[in-house]
Design a protein around this nucleic acid. Sequence first.
RNA 1: GCGAACGUAGCUCAGUUGGUUAGAGCGCUGGUCUGUGGAUCCGGAGGUCGUGGGUUCAAGCCCCAUCGUUCGCCCCA
Length: 451
Amino acid sequence: MSGLPSQPYKGAKDYYPEDMRVRNYIFTTWKRVVEGFGYEAYDAPLLEPLDLYTAKTGQEIVNEQTYQFVDRGGRTVAIRPEMTPSVSRMVAARRQELGYPARLYSLAQFMRYERPQRGREREFWQMNVDMFGADAVTSDAEIIIIADKLMRAFGADKKMYTIRINNRKMINLMMSEYLGLDVVQSQMMIKLFDRKDKLPREEFDEQARNIFGDEQHFEGMNKISKLLQASSMAELPRELLDSESVREVQELFTLLHESGVDNAAFDISLMRGFDYYTGMVFEVFDNHPDNNRAMFGGGRYDGLVGLFGVEPITTVGFAPGLTTMELFLEAHGLMPQLPSTTDVYVVTLGDVHKQARKLAQDLRDEGVRVALDSTGRKLDKQIKTAVKHKINYLLFVGEKEVDSGVYRLKDVLNETEQELSLERIVTTVKDRRRKQKQAVTPDPDDLGVDL
RNA sequence: GCGAACGUAGCUCAGUUGGUUAGAGCGCUGGUCUGUGGAUCCGGAGGUCGUGGGUUCAAGCCCCAUCGUUCGCCCCA
């Protein structure tokens, strides 16, 4: 025995059936919500030319955090670390025939060479949701409404999370017109705002003063404290309220409010990927004390499709991650009991294998998912196996049942038992399956989806 | 990339100032039972203490390195 290590690659995870139940639950819930808004599935290659990423972001991130190699044909390729460049490429390639607005989503895995931490892995799964070719504020609103519905679809209530919203255009306006900063100063100030909650107040102030330089800092600091005090749009300094970008943000909040998104808050310190966002940015924050963090976010990035040498196409989107969603559901006690995909486990008593096999096949022909215990083991072992696999029903098949055509079907969870014919077994199981599906994934009608 | 903690059976963990053959619960397995046993009772297997060096008469325990996990920083496209 040489003993090859059985653990998975660093930062990657094995998905056993119990893990897949969770993953499938989250994915199908996501799918149902975004498809309810008319988004259609797409996918892209796992590998892309490295250039696709260097063109978009800082060289440093690409070099340090992508898995890259030279293929046999000498091309430098990378395992995709995100979906946005790929989907932008796809849109650019068929820009004439997509039909706008184009609503697209994907469920895909990615790899980044990072230090694994809680909620952050090297291999991870995300859903990417993007709308192309729609620049009205209503599309910004739609994206945030979807993010909100995503949370509600898992049974989250508005106390459990907060949606924080800001706008890059508005920030740029504040930096240049209101605070009077040049481009370089603005960049520094934006980074500083982003780190506001991580710095002690004195250090924040000192760094802000440094950015202003000597002459302006007194007035500048005054204005900054006015900005930071604003917990809603209405509290912003009067000089700003008149601008177009501010009005746009106000309109966004009105739209959200009308759609029942009432836990969205304006947050001037929210910056998020300042390298390519061009308008609205938002983040969904987990309010649970054990898990206080930004879960996922997104925003408007109108410049990416244009990088492919075609006329720019406006884009707004977001991307929730599987692991963070899982941590959220666990922290808030929202993870349901997830049964096996197998409906029925056939337990055999005595020498009835042939008949049990036939019964199992008959049930399968009727659309029931059946696993047959063909081991001939003792009753308790057979039952234990079914329970371990979280299978909903046990079906006892012995000589008595074979003779009568009436079988004992046991509901494992409720520990109730019925004597049923084959037809009744089929309807009982399917009925239960339908109810369970509704309980685990609420009907889209209950989500209050409209826009 | 930086700082810190942890790593003992499949899982959760105990293991005295370094001192004989390293323990428990759960799980697994065999029997009991022989149509609900998913229980009870009785038995059993399973660990080169993450790995490799070192100190020592003696290392699960001390030292170094390495791998992995976790937490914080950086970053988070």
